[in-house]
Amino acid sequence: MRFSITDAVKHLIIINVVMFVGKLTLGDGHLFDELFTMYFPTNDLFKPWQVITHMFMHGSPAHLLFNMFALWMFGTPVEERLGTAKFLFIYFSAGFGALLFQLGYYYFDYYSAMQTLGNLNMSTSLLHEIMNINAIDGDMIRGEILQEKMIPLLNDANFSTSISAAQFSALFDLNVLNLSAMVGASGCIMGIMAAFGMMNPNAKLMMIFLPIPVKAKYFIPGLIILDIISAFTGQSFFSPSNTAYMAHVGGAVLGFIVMWYWKKSDKDKYRWN
């Protein structure tokens, strides 16, 4: 089988690899993460450009490898069919859709926690400081560390109101949300996969860990359903537990919407078939 790769796919892969090398080699491995990872907007490390740059960041070699393989496998036929401009439009539209879905999911938890804190009368600045406490121990965020680091902040602010267990739990949830970060091209690639599936509904696809051929029109919706289940239950099927599942869903939805519009539009310039 002849190996082929289209121009936009090739350049996207190069950019992703260069960003990963930079992440590993510059600033003791922290510089690129602090600058280009997408942080929750309340985090002190959040910068506006992260809404784009996080799409080119990856957490591990395996994360990069699987995403770039999927980008090549699905992106090449989509770009060949649609052309570079439309391919890139879907790619970045899906990336922004992924971000919106994941942030919307996070903000639902954010506002739920804020409602619990409604009667605490804590100043915005004090709450911001607590949310930005680094309570990480290894790979875990620990409540006892948060509590220990909160006490000096509360004392400095002369905050004497008693904090209930439910309110501390809400503060902990806000701290976790604030430290959450998004990286990866997965949302973009899910949009490309949705486009591929609409153009090739009967193409046979297989997962590496489940080598059973399934038609694209069943395979891709199946992946999306599993991501939705994982997002709301915490049960991970084929992805790491820290996967931004709703980002996958958002990317696929935006990819589907764009392709559906192009297919159904009466204007020939928007059609892809």
Rank of each mutant, 00 (worst) to 15 (best):
M207W: 13
V17L: 15
N175M: 04
L103A: 00
D227W: 07
P201N: 09
L103H: 00
N132D: 07
W272Q: 05
S265V: 00
F256Q: 10
P213L: 03
A203P: 06
G197A: 15
M199Y: 07
L71T: 09
K263I: 01
M246Q: 09
M198F: 11
A85C: 07
I90C: 01
H248G: 14
Q167D: 11
I133H: 11
T84A: 15
N132E: 02
T37H: 13
G97R: 05
I212T: 12
K149H: 05
F159W: 01
T37V: 08
Q167L: 13
L64S: 05
L174D: 03
K215E: 14
F40Q: 11
M114C: 10
L177F: 03
V258T: 14
H58F: 11
G27Q: 09
I136E: 14
T84E: 14
A62D: 08
H128P: 03
L65M: 15
D227V: 00
I90F: 06
S125R: 12
K47A: 14
L117N: 08
P48C: 12
W260S: 13
F66Y: 14
G138M: 09
S60Q: 02
M122I: 07
G118Q: 11
F96D: 01
T124N: 10
K10Q: 14
I192R: 08
P41M: 01
I141H: 13
L117K: 06
T84Y: 07
S186N: 11
M73D: 13
I141C: 09
L35C: 04
I145G: 11
I15P: 08
A247M: 04
E129S: 14
I225Y: 10
L154K: 03
G255M: 06
S4C: 08
S125D: 15
A135E: 02
C188W: 01
A170V: 02
S112M: 00
N200G: 03
L35A: 11
R2C: 05
F237Q: 02
F87C: 05
L127G: 10
M57K: 05
P152L: 02
A194R: 03
I224C: 13
S236V: 06
V249N: 04
I192S: 06
Q115V: 09
S93Q: 04
M199H: 10
L71I: 02
R271E: 01
M57W: 02
D44I: 13
K267H: 07
I229A: 07
I212H: 12
M182V: 09
Q167P: 11
K263M: 05
L24P: 01
A195E: 02
E79M: 06
G143Q: 04
E34V: 10
G27I: 09
N134S: 14
Q102N: 09
I15G: 12
A94M: 04
L103V: 00
W272D: 05
T6W: 02
A157H: 03
Y218P: 05
A113P: 05
L254K: 01
A216D: 00
H54C: 07
D268N: 15
L223Y: 05
V249H: 07
V21N: 11
F256P: 06
F256D: 07
F209S: 15
A203W: 06
K267P: 00
L45P: 06
G255I: 03
A216Q: 00
S162H: 10
